[in-house]
Write a protein that binds this DNA or RNA. Structure first.
Lengths: 215, 215
DNA sequence: ATTCAGTATAGGGTAAACCCTAAATTTTTA
DNA sequence: TAAAAATTTAGGGTTTACCCTATACTGAAT
């Protein structure tokens, strides 16, 4: 019997999860906690195998530090993050804090069961959605692209020139390498400055890197 | 019957993979290719379901562009990267180029079979190793600091100037902002170029961003 | 058939970047 | 306190970047 603790500050959600798991013979919902203090208290009393932990508890940092604490104090207890946050960096942070699995709240019953069993067996569990998020996690993809910057549509030549600029080549060097005149390269250079709305090469390189146009 | 093409410039490896797959009833190694040209030629003649592609073929860029080409020209053909490169950014780049799976060369037979079947069924395949690499991928921690590039020790002023350069300011603008002469700023600029061993501002910005000196 | 985007080329000009040598001052470190 | 590193300023020079106008060829879309 796998002893499960559900930690979530949304009552309805806790009940829903519990009813999902109630029909399973191998899994037992031992505890339900609606705040951090209750989780800490429960763990001190009752042995728990798997914790389904909502990260926003109520703040993200609360969930992270709680996860870290659980992992350190009760290494035999495995944490599965169960949250609506589909952010790659958050997933990584949770795993760093010791989470063995990560599920989005739109997961299915069978997936939830499989996750609990996998994690309880000492392995990590990440489904396709999570893998997909990690794969598409652009190191520099600023989701907080507040003002300005949408990635401009570059022509083939512009992309070539941009790449060469970022490699430190001068206009003349690029001209030689591309078998065109320096004036042609200069033209594309100007086009790039215009499309990125930047005044010079330095900011062009930075903007292009921020927008993933190079690297 | 799943028709498989093995693309690798290491003969021994190709033979090993083929012998691994030969005992399977559902999988048939239709083609073996030892260079990019052979792959392109084969695809034009014979329909292929799954390609096991070594990325270093012989260069990484070759494998990447070949993968892109295959995905574009033969969308029904699924590419599995099979390589010794365990670099997160490379995994992401391959997936961007259309790879449906990614296996390290220390994979097992059963995993290889499962990957081929999963990919042939139209789904992506990534095992725990790959997921683990993606999870531990520090946004900017370049483990591949091959030649040269260790982060140079910058003085306070140099850091300031570097930051302002990356914001697109000219030497004169920086001088005004820092309440010093343009010559002073020019000096720090030169120091930066020297410390980073780069010929101009463009590459300075790129290098500095790669090394996390700015952002 | 003709716009239109992309590419290439040209001349001429200003501003900025880049390189060198040289020296004085301040701050930090040993 | 002396030595080392950092900061500042300067003169003078070459190269490169950047801006403007203008023409012309190509291929793709209307």
């Amino acid at each position: 019997m796998i002893r499960v603790l559900i930690a979530d500050d949304h009552n309805v959600f806790v009940e829903g999860i519990e009813s999902l798991l109630s029909g399973t013979s191998e899994i037992e919902v031992t505890q339900r906690c609606y705040n951090v203090a209750a989780v800490v208290e429960s763990l001190g009393k009752v042995p728990i195998d798997v914790i389904l932990l909502d990260i926003s508890f109520p703040q993200i940092d609360d969930g992270l530090s709680l996860c870290e604490q659980i992992t350190r104090l009760y290494p035999q207890t495995n944490v599965i993050a169960l949250t609506m946050h589909d952010d790659a960096s958050l997933i990584k942070r949770m795993v760093k804090k010791g989470a063995k699995g990560y599920l989005l709240k739109n997961t299915t019953k069978s997936e939830l069961l499989q996750a609990i069993q996998t994690v309880h067996a000492g392995k990590q569990y990440f489904n396709e959605s999570i893998t997909h998020i990690l794969l598409n996690d652009e190191p520099r993809a600023k989701k907080t692209m507040v003002g300005a910057g949408l990635k401009p549509n570059l022509t083939r030549r512009e992309s070539e020139v941009l790449t060469l600029i970022a490699q430190g080549l001068t206009t003349q060097q690029m001209a030689t390498q591309l078998f065109v005149s320096a004036k042609a390269v200069e033209f594309h250079r100007s086009s790039l400055l215009m499309k990125f709305s930047v005044p010079n090469t330095a900011l062009l390189v930075k903007s292009a890197m921020d927008m993933q146009c190079i690297d």
